[in-house]
Amino acid sequence: MNLFADAIRWIMDPAHWTGANGIPNRVAEHLGYTALTVVIAALIAVSLGLYIGHTGRFRGLVVGVTGALRALPTLGLLVYLAVLFGGGISFALVPTIIVLVVLAIPPLLAGAYSGVESVDGRTVDAARSMGMTEWQILWKVEVPLALPLILGGIRSAVLQVVATATVAAYISLGGLGRYIIDALPLRNYTEVLVGALLVTILALVLDGILVVCQRLTVPAGVRAIRKSPEQRSTTKSARTVSASA
């Protein structure tokens, strides 16, 4: 309990909110790694996932590959790539982003293709019978309906990357992992706990934002279908009373 109280006092100390090692700077670095990783991974995985979900091709292969990617040891891969790239600290960002992109691809890919696959086939057939092209069906029908699941994949990827981006400090980069990596050799467990708490808080804040975004993207028609019979009955009665008044 004293360690936790010490960590809170450390965070609240104004001296730790300025400078290169200050909390705002470390949070900004951590968010920078996360944003760059998710954008690169989304360009690869979401595009591929939409193609797989729409056409149904290569699904088995991709599921197997993404399963293998999940099993890769993050820290071991990071050290291997850091040695492979060499070039000192100035090139440390490249292997870090590669490792985090590999980590982010599976949930993004799964969210994209499962979202498109979940769209009712009758809806797609109706759009096709109206003369819509495959491209129009994808972007005007499937993607809007699949958006909540796609955002679910993004949410999962962001949380995994935020938690894992602490390894960037292992090869002399910044981020919240600096508090953990720098403090461990000194047995400064208060600062280690500070790093863990800040990563947890950042993950919870980002998760809350993405949960709200995910709920807002559910189409109104789908929300109506998901309502329980009691809710639909109450809504219908309220509309009847309103109309009679």
Rank of each mutant, 00 (worst) to 15 (best):
Y33N: 05
A20M: 11
T235R: 15
S47I: 05
L48Q: 07
P95C: 02
I105E: 01
V199H: 10
T34S: 12
E191K: 14
L72R: 04
A7D: 06
I44K: 10
A245G: 03
G76N: 08
T190H: 01
L43Y: 04
T240P: 00
T55W: 01
P24H: 08
T234P: 00
R178Y: 07
L109S: 00
R59P: 01
D120T: 10
H30P: 03
T133G: 14
A163D: 09
L210F: 13
I225G: 03
T55S: 15
D120A: 09
G121M: 10
A196W: 00
T164C: 12
A146I: 05
A42L: 01
I8F: 12
Q136E: 13
L138A: 10
Q214M: 08
T217Y: 04
G56D: 11
W139S: 07
N21W: 11
Y189K: 05
S129C: 13
V38T: 05
P106Y: 10
K236W: 13
Q136N: 09
G53R: 09
E29L: 10
G115Q: 07
L50Q: 08
W17A: 00
H54Y: 09
V192S: 10
A28G: 06
A146R: 03
L69A: 11
P73R: 08
A15E: 12
P73M: 07
L93M: 13
I97K: 09
Q136K: 12
K227C: 11
A224W: 07
V99A: 13
A7L: 12
V79P: 00
L31T: 06
I105C: 02
I209P: 05
A45T: 02
L77S: 10
A203C: 14
L81W: 01
A110L: 10
S47T: 15
I181V: 15
I180W: 01
Y113L: 12
I97V: 15
E134K: 15
G195I: 10
V161R: 02
G76W: 01
L48A: 15
V65F: 12
G88E: 12
D182P: 00
V83W: 04
H54L: 11
A110M: 02
A68L: 15
G22F: 11
Q231W: 07
W10S: 15
V99L: 04
Y189L: 12
G53S: 04
P24I: 12
F85H: 00
T217P: 02
R215C: 04
V222I: 08
